[in-house]
Amino acid sequence: MVWLGACSKGVTPLVILDEGTVDHAVYIEKVLLVALKYGNQVFGSDWVFQQDGAKPHSHHLTQQWCRDNFPSFISKDCWPPNSPNLNPLDYSIWDELVNIINWNKVQSKTTLIQQIKSSFKNIRESVVFESCASFTNRLYHLCQNDGNYLR
């Protein structure tokens, strides 16, 4: 499992969870603490955390942790489920990462992790900034399309 956050200022540190199942407790301990530290360093106390509807994200203890710790947070009840059109990682940044990876060097889990770590450093800032900048426009078009996928 690979986690990455994106915002108008760039991407968060990469988190690779390569052992066991990622439940809400692991997500809080290994991912949300990274997101909180990054957000506070970059934006101070004026930022909003948003995530998708994965089970560890929508667990009631995760939701409570987010309410208690982030300066502002969009809860699972206020975010559409299965909304890749509203996630810059899903509609742009993961594709950028996949295209940077040297797949010829991937022979095992270990080499895959090595390639992800080295390729992550080469994600173009312009891709991150443009994908985040298009968020408001995507939100508008999604509303105009009754919440259906954008084409």
Results as ranks from 00 to 15, higher is better:
residue 1 M to H: 07
residue 2 V to K: 11
residue 4 L to P: 01
residue 8 S to K: 02
residue 11 V to A: 12
residue 14 L to Y: 10
residue 16 I to K: 10
residue 17 L to E: 11
residue 18 D to V: 01
residue 20 G to W: 09
residue 21 T to Y: 11
residue 22 V to I: 14
residue 25 A to E: 12
residue 26 V to P: 13
residue 27 Y to M: 08
residue 29 E to Q: 06
residue 30 K to E: 14
residue 32 L to G: 09
residue 32 L to R: 09
residue 34 V to T: 14
residue 35 A to C: 05
residue 37 K to E: 13
residue 40 N to V: 08
residue 41 Q to V: 14
residue 42 V to R: 02
residue 45 S to L: 13
residue 48 V to T: 03
residue 48 V to R: 03
residue 50 Q to M: 02
residue 54 A to S: 12
residue 55 K to T: 05
residue 55 K to P: 08
residue 56 P to F: 14
residue 58 S to N: 04
residue 59 H to Q: 08
residue 60 H to L: 13
residue 63 Q to C: 09
residue 63 Q to E: 09
residue 66 C to H: 05
residue 69 N to G: 08
residue 71 P to R: 05
residue 74 I to E: 04
residue 76 K to S: 11
residue 76 K to R: 15
residue 79 W to I: 12
residue 82 N to M: 05
residue 83 S to T: 04
residue 84 P to V: 00
residue 86 L to H: 05
residue 88 P to S: 02
residue 90 D to E: 02
residue 90 D to M: 00
residue 91 Y to E: 01
residue 94 W to M: 01
residue 96 E to V: 10
residue 96 E to M: 06
residue 97 L to I: 06
residue 97 L to R: 01
residue 98 V to M: 15
residue 99 N to M: 14
residue 101 I to C: 07
residue 102 N to T: 08
residue 103 W to P: 01
residue 104 N to G: 10
residue 105 K to W: 14
residue 108 S to Q: 09
residue 112 L to H: 12
residue 114 Q to M: 14
residue 117 K to T: 15
residue 124 R to C: 03
residue 125 E to P: 13
residue 126 S to R: 06
residue 126 S to W: 12
residue 127 V to I: 06
residue 131 S to F: 02
residue 131 S to Y: 04
residue 132 C to W: 12
residue 133 A to H: 07
residue 134 S to L: 06
residue 135 F to M: 03
residue 138 R to P: 00
residue 139 L to Y: 08
residue 139 L to K: 10
residue 141 H to I: 06
residue 143 C to P: 08
residue 144 Q to I: 15
residue 144 Q to A: 06
residue 149 Y to S: 01
residue 151 R to K: 07
